[in-house]
C-alpha cells in the first residue's frame, strides 16, 4: 500500500470501560483508501466494542476518532455521513419492506434524493436482493436479512464501511458473493471488518490487526502474517532420494529431515534459500525432483501462536 493514499479513518488511543472493566485499551489504528482491514480476535476481545466506537454508536472514554478529517466527537454529522455500519445484529425493521427500509436508511444517512432510485437498484443488485424488494424484512431468511444489513451499510456510498462479522449466517455461495463484494468495496473506499473466521482474512483482507484482551497485539499484511514465527523452508519430493546426509551437506540448509520415503523437509536461514542449488544437484545426480512446496503455516496456527505469545 503506497503511503500516498489518503488516510480515511484514524483512531488514536481509544479506551472503553464497561462497569469498571476495561474492554478496549489504548487502541490506535489507521485505515487508508483502498484498503480492507481485518480485525481478528477471539470472542470477547473487544472487536464489536471497537467497531461501535469507530462508527459513533458508542463514545470512547478516552481517545479520538477521525473520519476523513472530521472529528467524530466534534463534527458527528459530517463524520457519520461518510460511514456505513453493519453491527453484529443487523438493525432491521421487521415490519418494513426491503425497498422502503433501504430508502429510509439512505435518506437517514443524508443521501441525495436525486439518483436515489438508481442507488437503490444498484445496491440491490450488488447484494443480490433484486427479487425480494417488495417483501417484508421479517419474512426473509437469515441469509437474506444479513444481505439487507450489508445493503443498508453501503447504499449511501460511504467512504468507510464497517462490518461486524458480515458473513455470519450465510451459506457458502453467499459467503463467496459477499466476499467479492467486500473486495469490490475495498477498491473504491475502505473497509474494516471483524471476524473470527481466519479464511475470511486470508480471502479478502489486505491487512490484519489481531485483538486480544482489548488491545491490538499484532498488525501486518495478511500475507506476512502467514510467515509469523515460522522458520523458512520447503518440502521437496524426490522420487529417487539420496542419503539424508547429502541433503544436509547442501550449502544453506540448516536442517533436513525425512518426512516420508520420498519427501524431505528442508529448513534454511532466512534470505539464503538453497532451493535452486538443490534442484540443480537433483538434476545432476538423478534424484528426480517432483515438486517443491514452500512451508506455510495455516492461519489458525499463526493465530493461536500470536495470541499465546502475547498472553501474560
Amino acid at each position: 500500500m503506497p503511503a500516498a493514499t489518503p488516510v480515511t479513518l484514524s483512531a488514536r488511543n481509544l479506551s472503553r470501560r464497561f462497569d469498571g472493566r476495561e474492554v478496549v485499551r489504548d487502541l490506535s489504528l489507521e485505515l487508508r483508501r483502498g484498503e480492507v482491514l481485518g480485525l481478528l480476535g477471539p470472542n470477547g476481545a473487544g472487536k464489536s466494542t471497537t467497531l461501535h466506537m469507530l462508527a459513533g454508536a458508542l463514545a470512547p472514554h478516552s481517545g479520538q476518532v477521525t473520519i476523513c478529517g472530521f472529528d467524530l466527537a466534534r463534527q458527528p454529522q459530517q463524520a457519520k455521513a461518510r460511514i456505513g455500519f453493519l453491527p453484529e445484529t443487523p438493525p432491521l425493521y421487521r415490519d418494513m419492506s426491503v425497498d422502503s427500509y433501504l430508502q429510509f436508511a439512505a435518506r437517514l444517512r443524508g443521501a441525495p434524493r436525486v439518483g436515489a432510485a438508481a442507488a437503490l437498484a444498484e445496491t440491490k443488485r450488488r447484494c443480490g436482493l433484486h427479487e425480494v424488494g417488495q417483501k417484508m424484512i421479517g419474512t426473509l431468511s437469515k441469509g437474506y436479512q444479513q444481505r439487507v444489513g450489508i445493503a443498508q451499510a453501503i447504499i449511501h456510498g460511504p467512504e468507510i464501511v464497517i462490518l461486524d462479522e458480515p458473513t455470519v449466517g450465510l451459506d457458502p455461495s453467499q459467503i463467496r458473493d459477499i466476499r467479492a463484494l467486500i473486495r469490490e468495496l475495498g477498491n473504491v473506499g475502505s473497509v474494516i471488518l471483524s471476524t473470527h473466521l481466519l479464511s475470511e482474512v486470508e480471502c479478502v483482507c489486505d491487512r490484519v490487526e489481531i485483538m486480544h484482551h482489548g488491545r491490538l497485539i499484532y498488525g501486518d499484511s495478511s500475507a506476512r502474517m502467514q510467515q509469523y514465527g515460522l522458520q523458512p523452508g520447503f518440502v521437496v519430493t524426490l522420487l529417487a532420494p539420496p542419503e539424508l546426509s547429502e541433503l544436509q551437506a547442501i550449502a544453506g540448509v540448516s536442517r533436513a529431515e525425512q518426512v516420508t520415503a520420498t519427501q524431505f523437509r528442508i529448513l534454511h536461514q532466512p534470505g539464503a534459500n538453497p532451493g535452486a542449488t538443490l534442484l540443480e544437484l537433483a538434476g545432476q545426480r538423478g534424484w528426480r525432483a517432483e515438486q517443491l512446496v514452500p512451508l506455510q503455516s495455516r492461519l489458525e496456527e499463526v493465530f493461536v501462536k500470536i495470541t499465546r505469545d502475547e498472553a501474560p
Binding site: 461501535h52 463524520a79 457519520k80 455521513a81 460511514i83 438493525p91 436508511a105 437517514l108 444517512r109 443524508g110
Partner: peptide, 14 residues
C-alpha cells in the same frame, strides 16, 4: 430491543 437503535445512533442525526 431490536437493536435498530444502532442504525439511528450511527446515522448523521442528533
Amino acid at each position: 430491543r431490536n437493536q435498530t437503535m444502532t442504525l439511528l445512533a450511527t446515522a448523521p442525526v442528533s
